[in-house]
């Protein structure tokens, strides 16, 4: 079972990996610091809340780090889904759409 806390820790670790060598990754890490902490503490996060920093993936250079974008996206989608079941269902729906 996937938890938001696991995904938060994964995103943080992945961002830290690139933060020392990429200024945008460093900015991303700083931007998401608050929401990551709340997720790690088990705080309730609204499904409508946006994870900061998406702009660096679309208009910046961060999409070159595929593992970072995937970690960021998993964390964002879990928040949107609101539960482990919803999260798994959404990811499966993406597979279904490709068939």
């Amino acid at each position: 079972m996937t938890t938001l806390k696991q995904l938060a820790i994964n995103l943080e670790k992945t961002a830290e990996k690139y933060a020392s060598q990429d200024i945008e990754a460093k900015k991303l890490l700083d931007s998401i610091h608050n929401i990551i902490d709340r997720a790690k503490n088990g705080d309730v996060i609204s499904t409508e809340e946006k994870v900061p920093g998406f702009y660096w993936f679309t208009e910046g250079e961060l999409s070159q780090y595929k593992d970072l974008e995937e970690a960021y996206s998993q964390f964002s989608i879990f928040i949107a889904a609101g539960s482990d079941e919803g999260y798994e269902r959404m990811l499966k729906s993406v597979d279904d759409a490709m068939k």
């Binding site: 974008e69 964002s76 989608i77 993406v94």
Partner: peptide, 17 residues
Amino acid sequence: KLGDPGAGNATILNRVL
């Protein structure tokens, strides 16, 4: 997905979202 076949499902969904 066609634009980035190697990207994970979460990445694809989050981009479109």
